[in-house]
Amino acid sequence: MAKLLEVRNLTTRFRTERGAVMAVDDVSFEVDAGETLAIVGESGSGKSVTALSLMRLIPNPPGEIVAGSILFEGQDLLKLSDAEMQAVRGDRIAMIFQEPMTSLNPSLTVGLQVGEPVQLHRGASWKAAFAKAGELLSRVRIPDAKARVEAYPHQFSGGMRQRAMIAMALACQPKLIIADEPTTALDVTVQSQILSLLKELTRETGAALILITHDLGVVARYADRVSVMYAGRVVETGTAREIYKKPQHPYTRGLMACVPRLDGALGDRLVPIEGSPPDLTRLPPGCAFAPRCSVAQPGCLTARPVLEDVGGGHRKACFVAVDSGVPVHA
C-alpha cells in the first residue's frame, strides 16, 4: 500500500547575513495513514522548519525549499501552484502551532475561526460554518460549546485555545495533522489532556499525526515511530519501541541518558552531552555531531554518514558500530 506521505531528500535553505543555512538537509521520512510519527530534536535541529516545509509555509525570502519531493497521497506538493496548495492546507493537511494565542486572530470570535475551513474548503455558508464550529468545539470537549462560539480568544484559557486550534484542524477531516510543539506553552496536567485528546481524535478519524516535540517523554507516550533530528538531518529513525530500547546513534543514546526520569535511580549523576549544538552556518564537513560525540572516529570528521538500515526499518546515520543493543539508561 502506498504511504500517505513520503518525504524524499527535502532540503530547505535560509539565506542569512552570515551565509546560507541548510535548516533542513536531505531529510526523508514517510507516514502511514493513521500512524503517529514524532520528530524529535533540540532547538535548531530543523524539526519546525521541516513542518513548515511540508505545509509550504517557508517565508521566501529568506527561506526556500531547494530540493526534494513531498509526496502526499501520490501527489508532489512541491509541484503544486500556490492556489492548489492553498486548497490542500486546512483541508487534507492541517497544522496546529505551539502558541494558540498568536495563531488565533484576537479580533474575531472563536466560532468564526474554527468554522472558517468549512466555509473555505466546503463552500458552506458562514451561518452553517458557525454552527459546525459549535459541533467541533464540543467535540474537543469545550464545556458549553454552543455558547462559546461567540467568545473571543482572550476569553479562553491557554488549554481551551489549544482545544479550539485542534477543533479548527479537524474541521475538514484532514488525512494528516501536523502538530508543532502543541503543548510546550501549557502546564503539565493540561498538556496530558490536550495530547490525549489529540491522539484519541486522530484514532477516531483515522488521521495521521506528525508530532514535533523536544520532549522524549511525550514521544514515548504518544508516538508509533520516531525520527531524531540533529543539525538539520535525521540521524536515527525507527519504531518508538526500537528507538527507546536500542538507541543506535550516539546522539539519541546521549539524549536518553541526559534526561532525568520520574522512575530513574535516585542519587545518580546525569550524564550530559558535552558542548552545545553547532552553529548551522559553520557546520563541520563530517558528521555534525562528531565534535560532541564520545565515540567519534577520525573518519567522522571528514565524511558525512547517511541513514543506513540496522534491521527492521530502524535506521541510523553513524559510522560507528554500537557494541550491543543495551539501552543506555538501563
Binding site: Q191, S192, S196, G217, V218, A220, M256, R261, D263
Partner: peptide, 17 residues
C-alpha cells in the same frame, strides 16, 4: 501527567488525566 521516556512503561501506565 508526566510521561516517562519509555514506550513500554507508558503503554502499561494507567492514563488518568
Amino acid at each position: 501527567a508526566v510521561p516517562i521516556p519509555d514506550p513500554e512503561i507508558e503503554a502499561m501506565r494507567p492514563q488518568v488525566a
